[in-house]
Simulated scan of single mutants.
Amino acid sequence: MTAVHVRTENQVMYLLLDGGATMNSLIPSTLDDFERALDAAEVDEDLRAVVVTGAGEKAFSVGMDITFLESCFADVHGVFLPFLDRLHALLRRIELLPVPVIARVNGLARAGGFELLLACDLVVAAENARVGDIHLQFGVPPGAGASQRAARKLGDQKAKALLLTSLWLDGPTMVEWGLAFSAVPRERLDDEVERLVAAVRGRSRPAIAVTKLAVGAAQNLTLEEGLRYERELFEKMQVSAADADEGFRAYVERRDPHWGSADVRQLR
């Protein structure tokens, strides 16, 4: 059984997938824990980033639990498809969360674990991590978004190679392919994650949310549509939050800014 342990400190929420011998596999109660954490992240006005990682040194997450999968195949409509619907919704919530979500890939990430990291905004991987989608080895296609997110992140050729041939990528190859932001020796993983979260601590939460939304929409819009969308988001923020004016005043007055408490959910 994989539980999600939540720790929040210094404007960052850390989510630890802790599944012991199951290599942090996913079951319904794992999604329960994850959903509660995202509920808290959405309304925590002080939060600036979320970090997701796996317990231990072997795995980030190997996807759905093998024992649970047996019950899934025994009842596709009653168990399997409802679980996939929940996982789809969870991954979409990650993409729409108003703060960046960083995947700290400490080891093996496959199938559903691979689909989880695809939904994250930034990926930091250990150099010896192994990441891939192995659904086809078991006679099933991806079921939680890998075909769509991989194609958008990697392009047609690399996405098909990864999904159809069950390739495994190490950390440096993930960076080369555009699947990860950086790959570092395992002992430097925490330092690399800290380098990223330190850059968003103290920033305006509405400005972070708007920027993430705009960049996330770019691949699904034409340039003209994207420019209009950015303009709409910009206007929404100026009307609903005073952070832009405060940031300007703080810069001119050479002081730290004092951000407001605008509800960033209305900016979507």
Rank of each mutant, 00 (worst) to 15 (best):
M1Y: 10
T8K: 09
V12F: 03
M13T: 08
L16H: 04
L17Y: 02
G19L: 06
A21I: 13
A21G: 07
I27C: 12
S29T: 13
T30G: 06
D33V: 05
F34I: 01
F34H: 04
A41H: 02
A41Y: 02
E42F: 01
D44H: 03
E45W: 02
D46K: 07
L47C: 04
A49Y: 05
T53Q: 08
G54R: 00
G56Q: 08
K58P: 05
M64K: 05
I66D: 15
I66F: 13
T67V: 11
C72A: 03
F73S: 10
V76M: 11
L87G: 03
I94Y: 01
L96G: 10
L96F: 11
A103N: 06
R104N: 14
V105P: 01
N106H: 03
G107Y: 01
G112A: 09
F114H: 08
L118K: 07
L118W: 04
A119T: 00
N128V: 10
V131W: 06
G132T: 04
D133V: 11
V140R: 15
P141G: 08
P141W: 05
A144N: 05
S147F: 11
R149D: 04
A150W: 02
K153Q: 12
L154K: 12
K160Y: 07
L167F: 07
W168G: 01
W168V: 09
T173M: 13
T173L: 12
W177N: 04
W177G: 00
L179F: 06
S182T: 15
S182Q: 14
V184E: 08
L189I: 08
L189G: 02
V193D: 05
E194K: 09
V197D: 03
A199D: 14
V200F: 06
V200W: 06
R203C: 12
S204M: 01
P206V: 03
A207I: 08
T211G: 13
V215L: 15
G216K: 05
A217C: 10
L223K: 14
E224F: 00
E224C: 00
E225S: 07
L227Q: 11
Y229C: 07
E230H: 06
E232T: 13
E232Q: 14
E232S: 06
S240T: 15
A244I: 15
R255Q: 05
H258N: 13
S261K: 15
V264W: 06
L267I: 11
